[in-house]
Amino acid sequence: MKAFLGMGLLGSNFVKAMLKKGEMVQVWNRTAARATALEAFGAKVFTDVADAVRGADVVHLVVKDDAAVEEVLEAASAGFEPGAVIIDHTTTTADGAVARTKYWKEKGFTYLHAPVFMGPANALESTGFMLVSGDQETVARLEPQLATMTGKVLNFGPEEGRAAAMKLLGNAFLVTLTAGLADTLSLAKAMDVPLDDLSTLFHSWNPGTMLHARMQRMSKGTYSDPSWELNMARKDTGLFIKAAQAAGAPLAVIPSIAAEMDKWIARGHGSDDWTVIGKDAVTL
């Protein structure tokens, strides 16, 4: 028997996928209506979180943050079966994941933080990526059942909290990517470039293919053999800003990047590769 706590878009689709595979799942959600909606799919619904975990040897949860995880687990703990396994898919701090692993172990339970790079559709289709780290015997024991929930389980080794850190890093990239894309779309509008043309450009020229090479170049910390000089990159950045200002188009991140470039140019790095602006992030 499994229990699942938190019936948001991700949790509810995880449950639907489990039910399709013939598993028995007990569910709970703070807003009861979201849990009740799963009855039609075969889930057993509880309004009390401690009741929802009774009889379950594995308890999954996806809630908002560290505070919500701790609140829900404490409330549920009155119903935990001896030796129950807690698998937490919530995006949290690394420190929180480390502390909870220790806390629940001392109480006789296994806690594994397993955040995901999965949208609701992935949860329903059992595709995407699930991240784990920590005690490798625990990971090895639980990985087969986790693999049924996702396309791939990524094991980041024995360090507690590493999976949480990797999830935050991935989300940080997604946030900055989206903000940068918003600026690009705003600039396209400012220059009267149709979105279809921009789509054609990115379909043919995929900058995503440059990510690994760019990261490798930055991590080496060598910038004296430029492929794009910082001075030239700053010149182009000025053109972005000028075009946007002329059209009254908002830019969220490009002005901040320009300011950072100016700092590095003032330090004498204008002739270096423009990736030098990330030097402090990759060198001690």
Rank of each mutant, 00 (worst) to 15 (best):
A164M: 09
D65Y: 08
G238C: 08
T138W: 00
L131W: 02
T275Q: 07
L195G: 05
G161A: 07
T92Q: 06
G170C: 10
M24N: 14
A244S: 06
G157C: 07
K167D: 12
V15Y: 01
L124P: 00
L239E: 12
A179Q: 12
T222G: 03
E74F: 05
D262G: 06
V253I: 14
L38Y: 04
E23T: 07
I87K: 01
L154A: 10
S224W: 07
S219N: 15
P226Y: 05
V282L: 04
A3M: 05
M130E: 03
G248W: 04
A213H: 13
A3H: 00
W274L: 10
V25Y: 01
K44N: 06
G238N: 08
F202E: 09
M130C: 12
H89L: 10
R100W: 09
A179R: 04
A266Y: 05
S126T: 15
A164W: 00
A99H: 10
A258S: 14
K107D: 02
F46N: 00
A67D: 15
M232P: 01
L195A: 10
V132Q: 00
L73K: 04
V15Q: 07
F117A: 08
K263Y: 07
F80V: 01
M24W: 06
L10I: 15
A67V: 11
D51E: 15
E159P: 00
E137G: 11
K152V: 09
K263P: 05
M118G: 02
A56Q: 01
F117I: 11
I265G: 01
R234A: 15
S256Y: 14
K107P: 05
P82G: 01
G42C: 09
D272G: 00
A249V: 07
K21P: 03
P120K: 14
M166K: 04
G42D: 03
F109D: 02
W205M: 14
A259E: 15
D57C: 05
P115I: 02
T101I: 08
L142K: 00
D135I: 07
G42T: 07
D262Q: 13
F109Q: 13
G208V: 08
L169D: 11
L38R: 02
V63I: 10
F80S: 02
K167R: 13
A78W: 03
G22V: 10
G79L: 01
G208I: 08
N13Y: 05
A147F: 04
G151I: 11
A266C: 05
R214Q: 14
Y103W: 12
V15K: 02
P82Q: 07
L174C: 12
A52F: 01
N206G: 06
D236A: 05
L195W: 12
L124H: 09
G6T: 04
G134N: 03
A121D: 15
V62T: 13
V153W: 01
M1T: 13
F202R: 06
V53E: 05
E260P: 00
A266S: 13
E229T: 13
K105W: 10
N155V: 10
M18L: 15
R34K: 15
D196M: 08
R30N: 11
A258I: 04
K263E: 14
Y111Q: 05
L154W: 11
T31H: 07
T209I: 11
A163S: 12
G8N: 12
N155I: 06
L10H: 11
P144Q: 08
